[in-house]
């Protein structure tokens, strides 16, 4: 069990936890969405890092190359990036609507406004 062999996983876990921390500790909805996208991009690393082969090359078949990094995670993450930006756009549209309905995007102010309405 070497540090070099698992450093990539630990960096991924650190980014993931930074994203989780931002999502649950910050009440501002835009900040929460930023945390969510950091969490999401840590998942890119979770998939891409195990697919890398040191000494390998980009998986485009050409003469003179025999070792290629794993192309399958790349395909899955391409899909994830595009879906990620779609959900981000939807999330931001909801934030804009919430701001118009409540006049704030801070979570505790929103909860207070809801409590007053009840």
């Amino acid at each position: 069990m070497s540090v070099a062999g698992h450093f990539g996983y630990w960096a991924t876990v650190f980014l993931m936890m930074a994203g989780l921390f931002i999502v649950i500790s910050r009440g501002n909805l835009v900040k929460k969405l930023v945390g969510l996208s950091i969490f999401q991009s840590s998942v890119y690393l979770l998939y891409i890092v195990p697919g890398k082969l040191v000494g390998g090359t980009v998986p485009i078949v050409g003469e003179g190359f025999t070792v290629y990094s794993n192309p399958l995670p790349h395909v899955l993450i391409l899909t994830a990036i595009v879906v990620g930006v779609a959900t981000l756009a939807l999330g931001l549209a909801i934030v804009v609507r919430i701001r118009e309905a409540y006049g704030t995007i801070e979570e505790d102010d929103l909860l207070a406004a809801d409590a007053r309405a009840d």
Binding site: I48, K52, L53, P59, Y68, P73, H74, I77, I81
Partner: peptide, 13 residues
């Protein structure tokens, strides 16, 4: 990490 296509998509998107 040899993910050229993903890198381009991430930079653009």
């Amino acid at each position: 990490l040899d993910a050229a296509d993903v890198a381009m998509t991430e930079a653009a998107v």
